[in-house]
Design a protein around this nucleic acid. Structure first.
Lengths: 224, 224
DNA sequence: CCGGTTTGTCAGGAACCGGTCAAGGCGGGG
DNA sequence: CCCCGCCTTGACCGGTTCCTGACAAACCGG
């Protein structure tokens, strides 16, 4: 939630945040901010200090007594006293205008990372009947776990990161071999074949790891 | 803990903090900071960016992989990029010199309040027949206590913090020595072998400390 | 339907990787 | 000063994986 009374600034901030992949609800005064915060569980509150009806300090103070939602204060003044009051009232961070979009987004991300309950988030990709856990190096097809060699895993991981994208053989080779080694041989084809044997129910008729004739390979969701 | 190489600044900061009722341990370089942070559980780390041997950014990055201790970065430069890098590396807050004593103390208090209200995770990890108590540096396998060397303990602790995750040799090396020194040698392998002799009932057929061919090692729950 | 090109498949050998051992370096404690 | 553990390194070996070349099958345009 973003509490900011100047429509232009509010719009600018909202754009930064959505561009960074966040959703934002905008409110224009302190009372509304407080009411909304009570009705709905937000991940984070961006709170301008100068707000109509109820200023940011008050909102922060009241909210702190009833919730642990992260609060990031925004102020035009750079007065140190403001800053100190804000932090003492329970704000988690503080930025003075004018703020840079990148810094704002970075601070938001920091606060969100803290609140996200997942202690260790490992990027797990899913596509069709396929699952790839990169940090654990775990692959499952359907409900059976598959163990891949390093090269096979590298190819599969690269492809599932961008489902549907077509990869040339050279591009895939770069993932297995770090550097670009020009190889016109059958190397990649063999790896793909071995992968299909492990992840496709019928390797002769691939459903997910598909050939793009004349170009390379791609990973699709299959029949779903 | 306060990591700051300029003795005068370090002393000044220490005084601010003690005046505000905190205790502070002062270290003068990055490697020492990292080592101390591993040996002892601090409530918060005040980290100067420019440090000898290992700069603050590196310390932050490495430490973040193994701990959730709040980190407050300090820098002379006010470059925005520094700030962003710091926050992206997992720092919780950031201040540019010269900072006011009051603001510093306020930010420290904010971070400390956060960590104290957060449910503390127990520093003793369990996985299969393994137990690792980080604060006491105690390891048990089954019901027999094992004494590990520093390097062995560092590896085991790093792995048990994220069970199942696959660690490369370079990553594990970062835990035994502070810095990433490229070593194609058998260092890690030897440590792993010695660990297996101590914690596995049959070191030839490891049940928990497993090899991931072509990648590194991982710790699994074993037969359960 | 035909021919050239691209891909699937196979198997052997090269390259690589990890387990293990022993020797040497380094530092701390006596 | 020496002794003793610990860490590191290099070498060797057995096992796995990867690459390569050949051939068959599939694909595409005409």
């Amino acid at each position: 939630m973003l509490a900011e009374d100047d429509p232009r600034q509010a719009e600018a901030l909202r754009r930064y945040l959505t561009a960074a992949g966040h959703r934002a609800t905008v409110v224009a005064d302190g009372e509304t901010a407080l009411r909304q915060a009570r009705e709905q569980a937000f991940d984070l509150l961006l709170l301008d200090v100068m707000l109509p009806k109820l200023d940011g300090m008050q909102v922060c103070r009241i909210l702190r007594q009833e919730s642990d939602v992260p609060v990031l204060m925004l102020t035009a003044r750079s007065a140190e006293d403001d800053l100190l009051r804000g932090l003492d009232l329970g704000a988690d961070d503080y930025m003075t205008k004018p703020y840079s979009p990148r810094e704002l987004v970075a601070r938001v991300r920091t606060l969100l990372r803290r609140v996200r309950t997942t202690p260790q988030e490992s990027p797990v990709h899913r596509l069709g009947r396929l699952t790839v856990d990169e940090s654990r190096r775990l692959v499952t097809a359907g409900d059976t776990t598959v163990d891949c060699t390093a090269g096979e895993f590298a190819i599969l991981a690269a492809m599932i990161r961008q489902p549907g994208r077509v990869f040339s053989r050279v591009q895939l080779l770069e993932h297995t071999r770090g550097v670009d080694r020009e190889s016109t041989g059958r190397t990649i084809d063999v790896h793909v074949m071995n992968l299909r044997r492990k992840i496709e129910s019928n390797p002769r008729r691939p459903q997910q790891l598909l050939t793009v004739y004349g170009v390379g390979y791609k990973l699709s969701a299959g029949t779903s």
